[in-house]
């Protein structure tokens, strides 16, 4: 399920079947052009990952709105991320996965109330090229399997 009118109305009717949530964590930093470019690319990549995984398990996964933050202040963000997670676990959701390409979250994974799924991403590239597409497909099937092991 995605965060749009149609899917959310379906979710509201069949809450008991949907117990898994994916929150993409998307950093940005406008200080350096190079970093901005990389982060913009990685944002596209991460959204693609999340939406492909959602497509596979549409009936059990809800894709949350993306969580955006300014990079480099992960410690301060922990509380806010946990606040988001708290909102969703109340609905209830049993499994919360935080998708990210930002490896700084790994050190804080114990403080977070959701499961960090760190994806080794690409620095840059062309999302339309067939190599990148097969790389994404391969990874998506592995992430999907990983999520299934939690169910």
């Amino acid at each position: 399920m995605r965060w749009n009118q149609e899917d959310i109305s379906l979710y509201a009717e069949s809450k008991e079947y949907i117990d898994t949530m994916i929150i993409p964590l998307i950093p940005f930093d406008v200080q350096k052009d190079e970093l901005m470019k990389k982060q913009a690319f990685q944002k596209e990549l991460l959204k693609l990952f999340a939406s492909e995984v959602e497509k596979e398990y549409k009936g059990r996964i809800l894709l949350a709105p993306e969580y955006h933050y300014i990079s480099g202040r992960h410690k301060e963000e922990v509380d806010r991320v946990n606040h988001w997670i708290g909102q969703f676990t109340n609905l209830p959701f049993d499994h919360i996965f935080l998708f990210t390409l930002d490896m700084n979250w790994r050190k804080l994974s114990n403080d977070l109330q959701g499961e960090i799924v760190w994806l080794p991403g690409l620095q840059s590239g062309n999302l339309q090229s067939s190599e990148v597409q097969s790389f994404i497909k391969e990874q998506v099937s592995q992430i999907a399997e990983m999520i299934r092991s939690y169910w």
């Binding site: 379906l10 069949s14 079947y17 949907i18 497509k55 596979e56 398990y57 549409k58 009936g59 059990r60």
Partner: peptide
């Protein structure tokens, strides 16, 4: 596409 809630 599963006719229940749309999984594969």
């Amino acid at each position: 596409i599963c006719t229940h809630l749309g999984c594969t």
